[in-house]
Design a protein around this nucleic acid. Structure first.
Lengths: 193, 193
DNA sequence: TTTATTCAGGAACGATTGTTCCGTTTTATT
DNA sequence: AATAAAACGGAACAATCGTTCCTGAATAAA
């Protein structure tokens, strides 16, 4: 009985991820959203509720997509150490190529909002836990296969890897464009594995 | 010929660091500043210019104090490895004790503003360079004294250490309160040194 | 064709934003 | 005591904030 939506909600959400990722939550105005998503104020609020809800939904989508991607890559991997190296290299290439250095949407959101917004804090915590889990399982597999040193526990290494991944994303956000800096960090990280 | 200031500019700046650190730049309103610094709008603007200038001045002060502190500790150290361990432990204790988890003002500001504000970007870059320099010199000294492995170059290790320091500060900002997570990261980091 | 629903556009909302200005008070110097 | 400079509190500014509401157009089902 009703008119059909003229926009794709999923694509609109991707646009929301883009603009929030670039400008942050507080830095993105309602007008920015209208302009960037390309839909009217009324449609925007009818569809997503309000700015906070839209942000939470965008962050959740970002988390799901990234988490699944890394999970699948690691679970399909036969040589975890090499796969981890690929994951880091991808993050570095992304950091160096991006004209507008956006860093990592999850890291940015943690820093800006985790302590002021409970719902965002939940998403961040869930992401951290799942990432730790995925990395831990991967490291275990790598240790069993003899590709990764057993000197340190899998969970210890997983947390260590994730910490350096976060650090690199912060570095990217600051606009660091010297590849050598990233390579040095990865080199040191892999000397542990 | 003029009236004397009723407030201490330096102490007001410390208050500004506090509120900006806690709420971020965009999250802190002019009213927040008036309330927290305890001085009138007119005094605030007469003394510091505007919000952006006040923020930059606060961040610069934060940088100078922290940089000098770490520099002095490391230069006075006889066992660099132990001193680095102390520095990390202090950061962890600070993270776990702080009721309102503020993370690191420099990291927070990098993520929120570095790519949108050139002056802030300059401060962040300067801080990174100086910290890298201090850490590099320290590692060199540690390597010469035989306390730190020479397997990797001093600069590589310095960047690696700084990256993990940043990562830990992000973790703190997310509100992580499990000490084991921090300890695991430090354990892995020190296995390289 | 009618009806019900939801779309898009934009005007308008009150609240809050960062900032300025004014009138008064204070005080060090002359 | 007179003067000049600056700090003070608070009113007021225009602009922008996130959000709501109203209008008419569009369209799928009855």
């Amino acid at each position: 009985m009703a008119r059909t939506k003229e926009f794709n909600e999923d694509k609109a959400l991707d646009k929301a991820i883009e603009i929030f990722w670039h400008k942050g939550y507080n830095g993105t105005s309602a007008q920015d959203l209208v302009t960037h998503l390309g839909l009217s104020r009324s449609s925007l609020y009818d569809t997503f509720g309000d700015k906070q809800k839209l942000f939470a939904k965008a962050l959740k989508k970002y988390h799901e997509e990234n988490y699944i991607k890394i999970k699948e890559i690691l679970e399909a991997s036969v040589n975890i150490k090499e796969t981890l190296s690929v994951i880091f290299k991808l993050a570095i290439v992304e950091s160096l190529e991006d004209r507008i250095t956006k860093g990592c949407f999850m890291v940015n959101s943690s820093v800006e909002l985790a302590m002021h917004d409970e719902e965002i804090a939940k998403i961040v915590t869930m992401n951290s836990q799942l990432m730790e889990e995925v990395f831990t399982n991967a490291v275990k597999k790598g240790q069993e296969a003899g590709h990764i040193s057993k000197k340190l526990e899998a969970k210890v290494l997983a947390r260590f890897i994730f910490n350096n991944y976060s650090g690199i994303r912060v570095l990217a956000r600051t606009g660091e464009r010297n590849k050598q800096v990233y390579d040095d960090i990865v080199k040191a990280v892999f000397s542990v594995l």
